[in-house]
């Protein structure tokens, strides 16, 4: 069952462009052009793209913060155009992980405030806030002013804030941006736990490794349009990106007919780039066995999503 369905979402903005020293004309620029995708229940879905690609604009339309010029989206069964209030009740959002707080209020006070904005009474909101500070690991710092929080703590508080009304859908815009590796890992674990608990997650990120490891499916956006979509593996396969097969040959510094390099153990390593790693590896091992070489460590290195991104976006930019 789809929790989010975007259908041909399109958004343009007016921008003034100087034609000459005296004249400026207004032009409409496409921020998002006919973007369609579906996010299933319990799925982590990633929006990937360079700066200015249209990721945040897409998210803002789904959050009802922006009205699309064309198209629409159905979120948890409600249209963003006809039932925006219902959509808002069913989503939790993190738009900037370190922003949106009263700095001179404690973490708990901020959470209670947001809980009450979603219609909870003070007692309910407080109970939920305590529960969430424990879930995100902020229970020891819950009563400190937010101005004393580190970036990582604010990011955790942001996620807690997005969960205060227990929404079925959580939308995260760059949830780990600017965080140190430990804090970022904690946030990623938290996102995985949320998905395990049945929440649907829509996230944007610049971190390819993060998207590759977190997301079930991904869309790649550039200049407001979807350029590719699928699981991270499907994206790699679609582009026919090469895998790297490495086979260590023991007690040997050279292998006939193959280019090699010497590893730190002093053994020759055959390195082959291939789009069909299984076939290549079977053939290579057969040949080495036939020639009586002793085989050591074998590695098959998958292309990363970063390579997919570089290929798709780089090709479009002529890089």
């Amino acid at each position: 069952m789809e929790e989010i369905e975007a259908r041909n979402l399109t958004k343009t903005f007016k921008r003034k462009v100087r034609v000459n020293i005296l004249k400026r004309i207004e032009r409409r620029i496409y921020a998002v052009k006919k973007v369609s995708f579906k996010v299933n229940k319990g799925e982590i879905f990633g929006l990937l793209g360079p700066n200015g690609a249209g990721k945040t604009t897409t998210i803002k339309m789904i959050c009802t913060l922006l009205v699309p010029d064309e198209g629409e989206a159905i979120v948890h069964g409600f249209s963003i155009l006809d039932k925006p209030e219902k959509v808002r009740e069913n989503i939790g959002v993190v738009l900037a992980p370190d922003k949106g707080f009263y700095e001179r209020l404690s973490g708990i006070e901020n959470l209670v405030y947001y809980g009450r904005l979603y219609g909870m009474n003070k007692k309910e909101a407080y109970k939920r806030a305590i529960e969430l500070t424990q879930i995100v690991g902020l229970d020891k710092d819950a009563y400190r002013y937010v101005e004393e929080y580190s970036l990582g703590m604010k990011a955790k508080l942001s996620i807690a804030k997005s969960l205060i009304h227990d929404p079925p859908i959580v939308i995260l815009d760059e949830p780990t941006v600017g965080l140190d590796p430990i804090s970022a890992r904690r946030i990623r674990n938290l996102i995985l736990e949320l998905a395990k608990s049945g929440k649907t997650i829509l996230l944007t990120s610049h971190n390819m490794w993060e998207v590759e490891n977190l997301c079930n499916r991904v869309i790649l956006i550039n200049k407001g349009e979807i350029v590719s979509q699928g699981t991270p593996r499907q994206l790699k396969e679609k582009l026919n990106l090469n895998y790297i097969v490495e086979v260590e040959v023991l007690n040997s510094e050279k292998v006939e007919n193959y280019e090699t390099f010497i590893n730190d153990k002093g053994n020759a390593v055959i390195k082959i780039e291939t789009s069909k790693p299984n076939d290549t590896l079977i053939n290579l091992l057969d040949e080495l066995k036939y020639k009586k070489y002793e085989i050591g460590e074998i590695k098959v290195i998958e292309p990363t999503l970063e390579e997919v991104f570089a290929k798709v976006i780089g090709d479009e930019k002529g890089i």
């Binding site: 009802t64 913060l65 009740e89 738009l95 949106g100």
Partner: peptide, 13 residues
């Protein structure tokens, strides 16, 4: 400045 407004508009208020 604090982007609290964005969250207010994203809430059903």
């Amino acid at each position: 400045l604090s982007r609290r407004l964005e969250y207010l508009f994203a809430a059903s208020i």
